[in-house]
Design a binder for these strands. Structure first.
Lengths: 235, 235
DNA sequence: TGTACATCAGTGAACGCGCGTTCACTGATGTAC
DNA sequence: TGTACATCAGTGAACGCGCGTTCACTGATGTAC
């Protein structure tokens, strides 16, 4: 029986029994659950420590302040979106360059994006809520390198990254490889495509279209996908 | 001199000197200024009363609670967006049905929308922040009539309304009247167009693309407008 | 035209709450000799 | 292999703050007779 272990050992387990990093991970996970229900504003430091079963100030061993915890939660939310997209893409069979597969993978990306926004509006909002968003002001100097800006579309765009934009780029590259997207139209096309899907995601996930019934929702999805197809085909 | 007025009159001015509705209007205006700087979360009831020069609980003569004040501020923010769009459209000369004018008015709508999101990210976020957004949950039953849903695109869509979506519909109708948009493609096309512009507005206004330098920003705008044009032309 | 009274829109004071954050502490763990 | 000590990661108690909201009140305004 396990009860034969000395009581002393059971007692000394009270302190520091958690594996290294468990509290930090737990705080982020707790913050993620709070964000799931109420968006970024619901990520309350004290509540997260309560959920982990730790005293409030223990959080300061792992985060400088509440904003740093929120930043970690935002990153985790973005990771979850990326993971769902990757899972959707992986579910589509077919070799790289096969036209049907290429179309299917691009569609899977859009579908996963929209599904995430609708099923998890709180996490979706959190994923795109960079901390310090609260100060809506003119950002810094609006100059300097920006890794997500359109100017980063160059040779390095072939580097595979798991971010939503990176996955979209990969899918569009494959579409071009499959001959379904004219090479001359490839450059920068990820932005209009992203904007279209993101716009519907916001409007239908937590915006003014959030209450449309399911049938109309599917109609909306089809309208948007058809529109993107036309935009990719060119005028 | 005005100083010849009896001091008594100057004194009795202390109470109720404000015109009817001035405090309510002032609270909404104050809330709008708070939202301008910090988005919907910055709409703090006590701060608004301070700005108006009134005691905190005076707000409860005009609003049931903080949420009702926020709702009024959100509506005011949406009105400001609508007004900027209308002003942009009105600036484009040319008769109804003239191709150049029709194109110009549609472009003015998109430009005004994007400019508002970039210049006033706080107000833009507030305009689309329906109160009770904090509870991200499955809305009611997801059934019942929805006036902004796609099913409201019918004979009543010809009714002119000043909402952003209403103005977009009007512009697209004119585009069809001018022969630039195939009638068979008109139905529901406002949603993809709206989504595309809204998506860029969010991404570039307060999202991950908010820090892209001005040159790249204009490039993005052109990409999006070109994409919409291709989508309207059809595949 | 003047008076009596209801209503309206403000004041003043107070409440409980939960938050983020700081301080001094303590016990367990890991490391140097 | 055993001991001394630094570091790590938690505890316990407390802080000040600003918020939304409630209560009883009061004076000015509008209305009925």
């Amino acid at each position: 029986m396990t009860a034969s272990r000395p009581a002393k050992e059971t007692h000394q387990v009270e302190r520091r029994r958690r594996p290294r990093g468990a509290v930090r991970d737990g705080l982020v996970a707790a913050g993620l659950e709070l964000a799931r229900t109420g968006g970024p504003d619901a990520v309350v430091l004290r509540e997260a420590t309560r959920m982990v079963g730790v005293v409030p100030n223990a959080a300061y061993r792992h985060f400088a302040d509440r904003d740093e915890l929120l930043a970690a939660v935002c990153a985790a939310a973005m990771d979850e979106l990326a993971a769902r997209m990757a899972a959707g893409v992986a579910r589509v069979p077919g070799r790289h360059g096969d036209p049907d597969a290429a179309r299917g993978r691009l569609g899977a990306i859009g579908t996963a994006y929209l599904a995430f926004a609708r099923e998890e509006p709180g996490l979706f909002a959190t994923a795109f809520a960079l901390p310090h968003q609260h100060a809506y002001g003119i950002p810094d100097t609006a100059t300097g390198p920006d890794r997500t800006g359109p100017e980063s579309t160059g040779p390095e765009s072939t580097v595979q990254d798991r971010t939503p934009l990176g996955q979209l780029r990969t899918a569009l590259d494959e579409l071009a490889d499959a001959g379904l997207l004219d090479r001359s139209r490839r450059d920068g096309i990820e932005y209009p495509v992203w904007a279209t899907v993101h716009g519907l995601a916001v409007l239908a996930g937590s915006g003014p279209l959030r209450d449309v019934p399911e049938a109309a929702r599917h109609h909306l999805d089809e309208l948007i996908f058809g529109f993107i197809q036309d935009g990719l085909a060119g005028g």
